[in-house]
Nucleic acid binder design. Structure first.
Lengths: 207, 207
DNA sequence: GTAAGCCTACCAACTGGCCGGTAGACCAGC
DNA sequence: GCTGGTCTACCGGCCAGTTGGTAGGCTTAC
């Protein structure tokens, strides 16, 4: 009855199914029994591949952040600051299409990781943050960006992009690429009309 | 040994402590036993105030969204679109100082609410979204904003502001008001230098 | 034969929740 | 000023159900 599969693909299948279930029901609401049933295997068999439930979560996290960092390292070395920023935004928003159903896990179940892995992931997240900050800083140095506070701007960009996991759905009205384009345009130009910019910003409250 | 308190304040105390514990350990990792101990009461007594665990979560959510909506309704009726937008951003970012430790619960434990309450909260969230969209739309009509896609821009603003729950800490280097100011400035002016705006946007890829 | 892959059967521990009961404050009637 | 009734606030003790996890054995492929 049960299909035999080699160990590698079964393991990948477990992660895939787990990610889907975690996304649907949350990590804690998903029992190993549910997971086993969905995979088409008995619960005990899962422990042949993962010695405990947490490690499945760890795997999902590592897969995501490693992918992201790999992309980031490519972006980091070449191209103009503007293109690098555009690339980072496209990558971040693109996650929704590349890892449907995993992003929520990545953002919302980070704190349920074992402490050690939490730290390891954090280091990689910080590295990613650094890539974004570097792009902004280089852009400022090259006269391409006007940014008052690079760190804060980076956090704003991350927020804008990462928040898409709350509302962007693959196959919806907008593609990730469209959203990324719009965000880039928004970020570069702002939304103030010339009239507003004259009255609000030059004479505004900002020091 | 146990202090007598009138029902109202004990109830509020339970919500307070629960919010703190949920924030620290997550909803599921927080047991009624832990909560009771922290409140200084036996577990059974909690059920005198809340007939089940979920209802504590519901209360926390309602408190937050009701507060937010109340603010929003005030902003909605008066002032220029620019001021309304500024107000909304200040309100959203200000939540981190007003409800320290509750925001994470609000964003990350929404899906663990009972279905009925989930819908009720969603309705209010949608209303809030509508207030933001209206401010943007009115601003466009008044020639104050240049916005290609009002809905998408609203989501970008929400992302930027809401994401602060991930990094902004009360008592940190930046106050919520400062962050809100910076975000408003960023949103109005963008980060593109005049040079960049000439080359990237007018002749850019955006249709 | 041996090892990877999977299963049956089981369990210890935990957790939300319930039930019956108690202490004390307050009130009414006599 | 005593009695009985009622209400709030709280607790000890208990339990049904669930869950992650384990021990050990069968089977199929090579």
């Amino acid at each position: 009855m049960a299909d035999r599969t080699d160990g590698v693909s079964r393991r990948a299948q477990i992660i895939d199914v787990a990610a889907r279930l975690f996304e649907q029901h949350g990590y804690h609401e998903t029992t190993m029994e549910m997971l086993a049933q969905e995979v088409g295997v008995k619960k005990a068999s899962l422990y042949y591949y993962f010695s405990n439930k947490d490690l499945i979560l760890v795997d999902i996290h590592e897969e995501m952040i490693d992918h992201l960092l790999e992309q980031a390292r490519l972006r980091d070395s070449a191209g103009s600051p503007v293109d690098r920023l555009r690339g980072i935004i496209a990558d971040l928003v693109g996650l929704m299409e590349l890892f449907p159903g995993r992003l929520r896990i990545f953002f919302e179940h980070y704190r349920e990781l074992p402490t050690d892995q939490q730290k390891a992931i954090q280091v990689k997240r910080d590295e990613y943050h650094g890539v974004l900050v570097a792009a902004l800083r280089d852009g400022v140095a090259a006269g391409r960006f006007d940014v008052a506070d690079v760190e804060l701007t980076a956090l704003a960009v991350l927020g804008m992009c990462n928040w898409t996991y709350q509302w962007l759905r693959p196959g919806g009205a907008l593609s990730a690429a469209q959203v990324a384009d719009h965000f880039m345009e928004l970020l570069l130009s702002g939304i103030g009309s010339p009239q507003t910019l004259r009255t609000e910003v030059s004479g505004g409250a900002l020091g």
